[in-house]
Design a protein around this nucleic acid. Structure first.
Length: 637
DNA sequence: TTAGGGTTAG
């Protein structure tokens, strides 16, 4: 076939059926390639002609009817195969049948061949709603949001009414580009054409607003909907979970159940992921029991979500149990388990899993290496980390990106090898971002390297970081050195850039309920008991040798006041409540939104011995398991 | 000839 289409002269030695002589326009388009007019290309074609002619005898397109064409299109496994069927369709002149042409368009988009699909679309004589929606949806699914919206606009301008296929596709493009302005415009259009109450459109609208960070607008829309289906509930739950509001996500799920709506597997994945964000082990077990009770199969997606949930709720053992039970595992499941070990400081276990993954025929990807390097970093495995870092490109053809460099700088920096970290950064070709400089600055804090800290901070501040954490880090470094004027300057810079320090909070799960504490919080109904417990605890702890480490208080105030600040840190209030509300011997499990403070870390270690309690803290970076006076992080965090 | 669609894991 190819020979007939590309050969400039009549083929020799065979009779061509008349249909091959008059090449239809679409078939000509098929043979077009951008470089076909280049001289070397023409020469090459001449040389290839004989072989291709022979081949074409075998591969000559056979006539095909409409039904067989649709069946053949749906069974295409490769783009080459698809192009052969396309040629058959062209030769049989059934491209004029809309269902065939549209199916062809659709299958091209499914193979990610959007240029081919678009080429065909442009030459199609008759384009109906399906052709348009295939193109709008095709560009969207391929991640080409711009062309998705261009097609949508063309569709609307062609005088067609936006429908329940094209509107959700266009809204998804807005969601994926976080363009709530465009999303709002499309919302108005949906209202204008009376499509806003359609279930597909309204689910897409709720999803778009929520994922663009406008959860309140999403909820208003959700509450005002005349009808809701499972997907609408699911996207709203997901909106809360993704918006870092897992409490509302889980509350909405409970409400959904109360209203008699039965969740499906996708809803459960969303709920499990909300639970992972929350970090409450009791709740995690309840959700897992629900999944088992309702007999949802733990397939690769739900199973992986459950692994991640248990890991982030503090039980790496439960995560491993689920991992072992899963029949099908992909690279995401393996990476989730490696990451689970990593955040719990079990570097050895994480690294042991890597070769097992390979033995199971699963190849690592970029994220697997981030999980591995993270595990090395939090277990102090410098040499191992370095080996993995260099093996990425060499053995797996995965070029390290800025995140991998950040992990590596973290590994070297924490281990005190600041010079090596700098060297690595000097030699990198990928663009440096604030996270990378932040990692180096963190290392400067740990090893008190004032001069490098200043240089690093200069580069960091030049990038204009949006994360208040980096300013606080720098301010901490100055405060530790007693440079209060510089502390004030950093604070001023933060204010001028419109940033505020993220307030620290800790919550603790008691009897399946979470209780949240801020610094100096007195809002809890049992506040009196909590503060009384804190006073008796501090006496006991000081007798056992605890000395408040006032270096962690950064206000320029006297020592006595500093100690008072320390005692009302949210971590300590949560611990005190844990002691008040749970029987002796029960583990105390907490989640903190920021990194645990150094003084609270010391406090937890001592408390685990004095009170004979296991204390588990998830902070913004990792888990700390305190037991009998020491922490699983080995004071290395 | 009735094709195309909204939600999910590290």
């Amino acid at each position: 076939m190819l020979c007939v289409l590309i050969s400039p002269k009549p083929a020799r030695g065979r009779n061509l059926a008349p249909r091959f002589l008059s090449t239809p326009p679409a078939a000509a388009a098929l043979a077009t390639s951008p470089d076909q007019h280049l001289p070397w290309r023409a020469e090459q074609q001449q040389q290839l002609a004989t072989t291709e002619e022979l081949r074409s005898e075998v591969a000559r397109p056979a006539p095909i009817d409409t039904n067989s064409a649709i069946f053949a299109l749906l069974s295409c496994r490769s783009l080459a195969q698809l192009k052969r069927v396309h040629a058959q369709v062209v030769c049989t002149a059934i491209l004029a049948v809309p269902s065939v042409a549209n199916k062809l368009l659709y299958v091209y988009t499914r193979h990610g061949a959007l240029a081919d699909a678009h080429g065909l679309f442009r030459t199609m004589g008759e384009r109906d709603k399906v052709s348009w929606s295939v193109m709008v949806g095709g560009f969207g699914k391929a991640g080409d949001h711009r062309n998705c919206l261009v097609m949508f606009r063309e569709f609307v301008r062609s005088g067609s009414r936006a429908d329940s296929y094209t509107l959700p596709a266009a809204l998804r493009a807005c969601r994926d580009t976080s363009d709530s302005n465009m999303g709002g415009t499309i919302h108005q259009l949906a209202c204008k054409v009376g499509m806003d109450a359609d279930l597909f459109v309204s689910a897409a609208l709720v999803n778009m607003y929520a994922r663009c960070g406008l959860v309140v607008d999403a909820r208003k829309l959700f509450d005002g909907m005349p009808a809701r289906d499972l997907v609408t509930w699911t996207v709203m739950i997901d909106g809360y979970a993704e918006g870092e509001n897992p409490v509302d996500a889980l509350a909405l799920f409970d409400r959904m159940l109360l209203q008699g709506v039965r969740p499906d597997k996708v809803t459960m994945v969303t709920v499990v992921s909300a639970c992972a964000k929350l970090g409450a082990l009791h709740k995690a077990k309840t959700v897992h029991d629900y999944i088992l009770g309702k007999k949802f199969p733990l397939d690769v997606i739900l199973g992986t979500a459950v692994i991640d949930m248990y890991a982030k709720c503090g039980s790496v053992d439960a995560a491993r149990e689920v991992f072992d039970q899963m029949k099908e595992k992909n690279v995401i499941s393996w990476s989730a388990m490696i990451s689970a070990y990593g955040i719990h400081g079990c570097g050895k276990e994480a690294l042991e899993l890597f070769p097992v993954m390979l033995q199971n025929g699963v190849l690592p990807n970029q994220i697997t290496f981030i999980s591995i390097l993270y595990a090395c970093s939090h277990a102090g495995l410098v040499d191992e980390g370095r080996q993995f870092f260099y093996s990425m490109a060499r053995d797996y053809n995965i070029e390290p990106d800025v995140k991998h460099y950040t992990c590596m700088v973290d590994i070297l920096g924490r281990a005190g090898r600041l010079g090596e970290a700098m060297e690595l950064m000097d030699g990198m070709t990928v663009e440096k971002d604030e996270g990378l400089w932040g990692a180096l600055l963190g290392a400067c804090r740990i090893h008190r390297d004032m001069s490098l800290a200043e240089k690093t901070a200069a580069s960091l501040l030049e990038l204009g970081p949006k994360n208040p954490g980096y300013y606080v880090l720098l301010s901490n470094i100055y405060a530790n050195a007693g440079r209060w004027e510089d502390v004030a300057k950093v604070r001023e810079l933060m204010t001028s850039r419109g940033l505020k320090k993220t307030p620290g909070w800790t919550w603790i799960e008691i009897n399946s309920e979470t209780h949240r504490f801020n610094v100096g919080d007195k809002a809890h109904p049992q506040a009196a008991q909590i503060y009384q417990m804190l006073r008796s605890l501090s006496r006991k702890m000081e007798l056992a040798g605890y000395v408040p480490d006032t270096n962690f208080v950064l206000h320029d105030v006297d020592e006595e006041l500093k100690a008072e600040f320390l005692y009302t840190h949210s971590e300590k209030l949560a611990i005190a409540y844990g002691l008040v509300a749970t029987p002796q011997g029960t583990a105390i499990r907490m989640v903190k939104n920021l990194r645990i403070c150094g003084d609270c870390h010391t406090f937890c270690k001592l408390l685990s011995a004095v009170e004979q309690r296991e204390v588990v803290v998830r902070d913004a970076n990792r888990f700390h398991h305190f037991k009998e006076g020491s922490c699983s992080c080995g004071d290395y965090w």
